[in-house]
Simulated scan of single mutants.
Amino acid sequence: MPNQQKKVIFCMAGVLSFACALGVTAAIGTQQWLSGTILCKTGALLVNATEEELQKFIGKVQFGLFHGQWVRQCGLGSRPFRFSFFPDLLNIIPASIHISVLLFSAALAVFALVETGFFMFNAFGNPYEALHGPLGLYLWSFISCSCGCLVLILFSAEVKIHHLSEKITNYKEGGFMFQTHSEQFGKSFWIIFACTLVRLLNIFLIRLAGFQFPFSKSKDSETSGTIDLMY
Rank of each mutant, 00 (worst) to 15 (best):
G59I: 02
A21C: 10
F86K: 08
E158I: 06
M230I: 12
I97E: 11
T180F: 00
W190D: 03
A49W: 09
E158L: 06
K41W: 09
L205R: 03
D228K: 14
I38K: 08
Q32V: 15
G175I: 10
S165E: 11
L65N: 00
S84C: 04
K172M: 05
V159M: 03
V47S: 08
I93K: 02
C40T: 08
V15H: 14
G133L: 06
C20A: 05
D220S: 15
T25D: 11
L137F: 02
A26L: 14
E51I: 08
L46C: 15
L135D: 15
Q4D: 15
G14K: 04
R199P: 09
K7G: 07
K187C: 10
G64L: 01
T223A: 14
I38N: 10
H67K: 09
F204G: 06
G43Q: 06
F121W: 11
Q212L: 15
F18R: 15
A107L: 07
F121C: 13
V61H: 07
G133P: 07
L54S: 06
W33E: 05
T116M: 04
F118V: 07
C195E: 00
K172F: 05
G75P: 03
F176G: 04
I168T: 02
F121G: 09
A157Y: 13
H181S: 05
V24I: 12
M12H: 15
I99Q: 03
L150W: 13
Q212N: 12
V61M: 04
K167W: 01
K160F: 13
H98P: 03
I203P: 00
G68Y: 00
V61W: 04
E166L: 01
A95P: 04
A109N: 01
C20F: 03
